[in-house]
């Protein structure tokens, strides 16, 4: 694994399990500052779980998650909330507040954490909405938006306070090709101009490869490969190859663990 000069999130020997099922087993992940890092892997490998662990919404069984040197699992409630002020997160469902308008959703973090005047807040919110192409929708309620639009509003909300770290959970899912292209550019541009660190969880291989500076591929509770997109394209490991090329047959099983297919089908006749 490459060593970075400046690491913003340093995950050391992380273990996490849900019930009997191990999601992570002694995993080390480093996220470089100011870059776009992609976390890829088949669904069900715990990519979203990783974001929740970094955000402190889940506690690991063992291991450390250092964000700027602060160990998230050991922080108290109020310290955790102040660390989260520096993070923005785009949820898979968007998770907009359904009782307030699009405008108020984006204004929410600004109102909570700053003392800006109302006309200033209005300008900031409209600029953020303009960036995601939805300035004209600022009066709508979340129930009037399509899934893709809701995700873009949620993105505007996640970047409303210009956080140091932005975590994107499946930002490309459900977007039409035009919005997808705009989003890819937007994430790149935001990252370059604001200098924050972006973490993208996704299984959209081409988009993530095109945008990320660095990628970790997760499978079987472990990081199976890390590197720049070019390095990953060169990797010989069959597991990585299978994932990068989307092949159904290979070491990564498509099927959830199950008994023998034929016996399972025939059992009903007994």
């Amino acid at each position: 694994m490459n060593e970075f000069d400046d690491v913003v999130i340093d995950i050391q020997k992380l273990s996490f399990s849900r019930g009997e099922r191990s999601i992570y087993n002694e995993v080390d992940i480093k996220i470089p500052r100011g870059k776009i890092t992609g976390i890829m892997g088949p669904s069900g490998t715990g990519k979203t779980t990783l974001l929740r662990l970094i955000g402190g919404q889940l506690k690991p069984d063992r291991g450390a998650i250092l964000v700027d040197g602060e160990n998230i699992p050991e922080l108290g409630r109020s310290d955790l909330f102040s660390v989260r002020e520096r993070m923005g997160m785009l949820f898979q469902s968007g998770a907009l507040f359904t009782d307030i308008s699009v405008f108020e959703n984006v204004a929410f973090p600004i109102r909570v954490h700053t003392d800006l005047a109302d006309d200033m807040i209005r300008d900031v919110v409209l600029m953020k909405l303009q960036a995601v192409g939805l300035r004209g929708a600022h009066n709508l309620m979340p129930s009037e938006l399509s899934g893709g639009m809701a995700r873009r509003v949620a993105l505007a909300r996640a970047i409303a306070l210009d956080p140091d770290i932005v975590m994107y959970d499946e930002p490309f899912t459900g977007q039409d090709p035009i919005a997808m292209g705009v989003l890819v550019n937007l994430i790149r541009r935001l990252n370059n101009s604001l200098g924050h660190t972006s973490i993208i969880v996704s299984h959209d291989i081409q988009e993530t490869l095109g945008i990320a500076d660095y990628i970790h591929i997760i499978a079987d509770s472990k990081v199976i490969a890390s590197g720049t997109p070019e390095e990953l394209r060169q990797v010989d490991s069959p597991q990585v190859k299978q994932f990068m090329h989307g092949l159904p047959d290979g070491p990564v099983p498509f099927h959830y663990p199950a008994g023998d297919y034929e016996t399972d089908l025939l059992r009903g006749q007994g």
């Binding site: 909330f81 989260r84 949820f91 469902s93 359904t98």
Partner: peptide, 14 residues
């Protein structure tokens, strides 16, 4: 269920 509580937490609001 719609992750609104989670997103409040991530915005830094209890």
């Amino acid at each position: 269920a719609t992750e609104q509580l989670s997103s409040l937490e991530m915005i830094g609001v209890d």
